[in-house]
Design a protein around this nucleic acid. Structure first.
Length: 480
RNA sequence: GGUCCCAUCGUCUAACGGUUAGGACAACAGGUUUUCAUCCUGUAAAUCGGAGUUCGAUUCUCCGUGGGAUCACCA
């Protein structure tokens, strides 16, 4: 009796992978891997109107990017229509479903009426008791019809892995359309049939499915199939606590990739939206999550998708990268710029520059602007940066700092460590009788043309004698 | 409106019915630093309200309140 676990991720191909979908996929993946089970991918493309070209590829790419690899599929529901039809027919014969000839117009009218009377919108079962002869006659006459599920008018209980026992009233629930008039199944039928045929043991999905779960459970009962275990995940929320939507920020997983977030950070961040290990540990790799994840610890309440923590995690994972790995990650962003192709530098220098900038990167996109002053042959100075009231630096002071530092640094031989550079410049500072900042601030700007950058000594060491002197002289010439 | 779900710092969350209600992010204040960042230290910040059960409720029950989801021939 190996009760082997099987989970699945079943998106509909209406666009890109949503971050909420990413979390659902992640939890399903974790649960399957943790139990040495199977993680399957299924594409719910039963609505021809909503199909988006390229969506399937885009979703698979995104899942692969995050290393959420699947063992089975993708299975396409659109290729299985006969199967659903077969099962629907079976339900009709057993009295669990019935054909319905009501037109869209009649249903609209009915709903308007119900709304006017403040009744809940619900199919009135006009076609529930049509005689076999009438059904035959009308369908042969070419009248379009759907197949509806006959919902039992009784209470239903089922267990949810995150919420415990659920109770619904059959009389409140609508007779769901199972087969549309175009012959395609709706989500409800296809979902149940596929989960059964694929032998899915755990259905892990978003909370928005909770209200339709009784329909699914009744379908399992009608077929006399054992239902899978259900786990409904809390929603991801906008800052105003409504369901996460495009209106209020980026919702596509790939948007975050494009913004320079690391997959490690995304996974760690997403995993903690609705789950935590119960300890004070906060950094988890995918492998560690596989080890530690548990549905029992999944939160019931929705979680606001708040990016501040993601920024923090991203910075953490960037700093944890080896400099070679970071260089590879950063390369595409540099190549996108209009200046990168015109620069020349040694790989060794590049790695040194990158290392000095690593500490202050929040996303991979930060690399290009931060590296630019190191890589460019000549800087286009913003003179306002030189002068600082707080530092007590004006034009005269700047010129003085540059004029005096250049000969001193020219005489200096040892650029291999900050100490010798510091010693050299401190001598100059003492000779001039100025404050450290008055000397070092304009030098730092001359070297970097940045408001925020590594320290002056570090910059000089990183750039080496030649580039340092070139920069200082260039700045002096331009400022005078 | 019907049905259902949910409720601890601003945010993510921890707490066998017994804790000074803990941690992280963010914020703020210091230290390190010529700037920024990193790093370190500290401060402020929460149990939605009311009953009940109990010697004792963040925790259990009920009622409110608030928020959310869902009610298609979409998933």
């Amino acid at each position: 009796m190996q009760n082997s676990v099987k989970t699945r991720f079943a998106p509909s191909p209406t666009g890109y992978l949503h971050v909420g979908g990413l979390r659902t996929a992640l939890y399903s993946y974790l649960y399957a891997r943790q139990n040495k089970g199977i993680f399957a991918l299924r594409i719910e493309d039963t609505d021809q109107k909503r199909y988006v070209e390229g969506a399937v590829e885009s979703m698979q790419n995104a899942l692969n990017f995050f290393n959420l690899t699947w063992d089975e599929g993708p299975i396409f529901q659109s290729k299985r229509t006969e199967i659903y039809m077969k099962y629907a027919t079976q339900l009709v014969e057993a009295g669990h479903a019935y054909p319905c000839f009501c037109t869209a117009e009649r249903l609209d009218e009915m709903r308007k009426q119900q709304e006017a009377n403040k009744q809940p919108p619900k199919y009135d079962r006009l076609c529930l008791n049509l005689s076999a002869a009438e059904i035959k006659a009308r369908s042969e006459a070419g009248e379009a019809y759907v197949i509806r599920q006959r919902i039992p008018q009784e209470d239903l209980f089922f267990n949810d892995l995150v919420r415990g026992e659920m109770k619904f009233h059959g009389k409140d629930i609508d007779d769901q359309v199972l087969i549309k008039s175009d012959g395609f199944p709706t989500y409800h039928l296809a979902n149940v049939v596929d989960d059964h045929e694929m032998e899915v043991t755990h259905v892990i999905r978003g909370e928005e499915w909770l209200p339709s779960t009784p329909k699914h459970v009744w379908l399992y009962q009608a077929f006399a199939w054992t239902p899978p275990a259900f786990a409904h995940l809390p929603l991801l929320l906008n800052p105003d606590r409504s369901k996460l939507s495009k209106r209020q920020g980026d919702v596509a997983a790939e948007d975050y990739i494009k913004k320079g977030y690391l997959k490690e950070a995304m996974i760690n961040f997403i995993a903690f939206l609705g789950w935590n290990p119960g300890t004070e540990e906060e950094f988890f790799t995918l492998e560690q999550l596989v080890e530690r994840f548990s549905i029992e610890r999944v939160q019931k309440a929705g979680a606001v998708f708040n990016l501040e923590k993601l920024d923090f995690l991203n910075g953490h994972y960037i700093r944890a990268k080896s400099i070679e790995d970071l260089a590879a990650l950063v390369k595409p962003w540099l190549e996108e710029t209009d200046w990168f192709s015109k620069t020349s530098f040694t790989q060794e220098n590049f790695l040194r520059f990158l290392a000095s900038v690593q500490m202050r990167m929040k996303t991979l996109t930060d690399a290009a602007p931060m590296l630019r002053p190191f890589l460019l042959d000549e800087l286009d100075y913003d003179f306002n940066l030189f002068y600082s009231e707080k530092m007590k630096v004006d034009k005269t002071m700047t010129v003085m700092a540059l004029e005096n530092s250049i000969p001193a640094l020219e005489a200096l031989e040892d650029y291999s460590n900050e100490e010798s550079i510091k010693a050299c410049l401190v001598t100059v500072i003492e000779k001039l009788g100025v404050k450290n900042g008055q000397m070092l601030w304009p030098m730092r700007v001359a070297l970097s043309n940045e408001q925020f950058s590594p320290g002056t000594f570090e910059l000089i060491q990183l750039m080496g004698k030649e580039l340092t002197l070139k920069r200082l002289q260039d700045a002096l010439d331009k400022i005078r």
